[in-house]
Design a protein around this nucleic acid. Structure first.
Lengths: 192, 192, 192, 192
DNA sequence: TATGAATGAGCTTTCATTCAT
DNA sequence: TATGAATGAAAGCTCATTCAT
């Protein structure tokens, strides 16, 4: 039942938004009563937090696996991180959209729980870039924090437009982004 | 008065969100009554649409000016477009955040009015890239639509984190992004 | 309308209790909608506070008039204070019962507003007793605080049983209490 | 278990009130489930009735012992009755407060069971006064019913303010009240 | 003896909107 | 141009109670 409530909530939150989805909507979809909802959750926000946690914890887990893999070069690590961020959006698109859109509706205390996790994701990318700069595989004149935010922007934005049924797969999108980020799009290097 | 309602609404929508801001909040802040609000606007959504239109029309205007400037190279056009998207977020940050966050709360008919304008922005960038590819200044193996979305992602995402008081200015962020997009971050080209 | 809401609320709070009376009860009795209620009051508790304030402020006002009357002896002052407490319960019985019964449902901040006023009533009686002791009209071996609480107990308790249609009027009850308090009920003095 | 439920309920009813205390509060405090509660009691009101009965039956028992003691004078009987009413409030303060405050939440049928017992207490005091008047130890011009209610008021009101840790003990309070009731507070007798 | 899942009615409160003035 | 009174629908949440196990 708890699982079903979450599943239904993800669907409705994604379609209508968190605020616009009422408890009534959720329980009516499930064919149960409000009481049942509140037997399993203390509040609507708690369901949102559950969805949030589940999404980000899953991302962090995958990230950890990538980072501790000693066989990967800096470039490969960056590639895999980007790949992971984007391919997560594809199969878990609904959760992803809820995650990115409804962030602001978490309670203050839950926000404080989630924010460090978000930072962790950003910091991991930043660290790979800094390490790569020191190793000489990335240009030494980069500003790693802003570069990181640019990469994250490109990746996270995909939740806004990516269509699993479209002609370009998530893997391909990731490859295109990695290519652009590593090599740029110019025919001549260091043009500007 | 109409102006004041819009100004106050932008502030409140940005701080609390569109749904979370009540008409009462708006009129109380202004020291007028609900009746006054409904004298100038038919609905809360209409205020949102006004804010939206104003923001996107302004962007489109700037874009048009850039595109019709015959003195600019493809690279320069791309640079100026990116620059424009990002620097718009800085001085009009509140409007920008309302624009990006509250999009979904427009009515269906208003959405149909705004969507083509959003497409126009995307298409302009895509066209510059295609033109540049044909002119040989951009690599010929790019997939312009996905590249465009990547660029837009990086730019639009700035509204989420950009801080006008931070150590990196909007102009600098734009430069860093242009540099990354054009030249990549790798020391060796075409590495992967 | 505000007056009508208060009047109806007093009646319903008295009959059914504050908690047991729903907003629905109040507005249905008045033939208006819930919205109307909340147009005039921010909360149910605010209505209770209004009733409370009105009752106690009225009592305090009467008390002040008695205390500043220089023509009255200590005994007469005590008599009038007791008389006032009891006769207030008779015509404003519903308010009185709400006042005594529903005290605990005031919000913390409102409680802090009302408590000093309650203290003021008690302190006035205590002061009359102390003054009378010093003047020699009351026995010198009394413990004024406890005596005061006893007197207040006898008076306030009347709200529990007094019936305006009963055979003993409020004035008579007050006289009987004053007589008992001043002279006791024993035939021989200082018996125990 | 049944005992524990009652004990916990007394505490919670006293602290938060009967209505404001939910079954959930009770069972959570005890670390059991709602089912357990309903195994022992049919309703929340039944717990209240149990608390009520226990309190009043205990008072009635003590009262009976006092009344049938042939060695006591009328004055002594009155003294002991007052003493009993007040000293009961001290050790069983929580029960006492629940008893006096939550009376109104008993069901109609339970009220009909409790009311005669309350009358019994009142009638006992009234009878002592009438007997004392006939015996000439109490003044012959008293109105026994009103006097009784005044005495009961003073006694019962103690539940509102009595503090077992305060400087005046319950026994002392009782003595002060008996003294006041028997002898009054005036230095000259039959003053008014 | 005790549990845990589920109910359904009810609660206070909020809010966008309307409209006569 | 602006007000203030009123509406009515809906929201999130609570709770006493039931019942199969």
């Amino acid at each position: 039942m708890k699982e079903e409530i979450i599943k239904t909530s993800i669907q409705l939150f994604e379609q209508q938004g968190f605020i616009e989805t009422s408890i009534r909507d959720i329980v009516q979809t499930l064919g149960v009563t409000k009481g049942t909802f509140y037997y399993y959750f203390n509040s609507k926000e708690q369901v949102l937090m559950t969805i949030h946690s589940s999404y980000i914890d899953n991302v962090l887990e995958q990230q950890k696996a990538i980072l501790k893999n000693k066989n990967l070069s800096h470039v490969e690590k960056l590639h895999q991180l980007i790949d992971m961020l984007i391919t997560n959006i594809s199969p878990r698109g609904q959760s992803a959209r809820v995650f990115f859109r409804e962030f602001r509706h978490l309670s203050e205390s839950h926000l404080n729980e989630v924010r460090p996790k978000r930072d962790e994701i950003r910091n991991a990318i930043e660290k790979v870039i800094i390490d790569g700069m020191q190793a000489g595989v990335f240009r030494s004149n980069l500003q790693p924090d802003i570069i990181t935010l640019g990469i994250l922007g490109a990746c996270n934005w995909t939740y806004q437009w990516f269509n699993p049924e479209g002609k370009t797969s998530d893997k391909e999108v990731a490859s295109i982004y990695v290519d652009m980020i590593l090599n740029g799009i110019s025919t001549e290097q260091n043009k500007e």
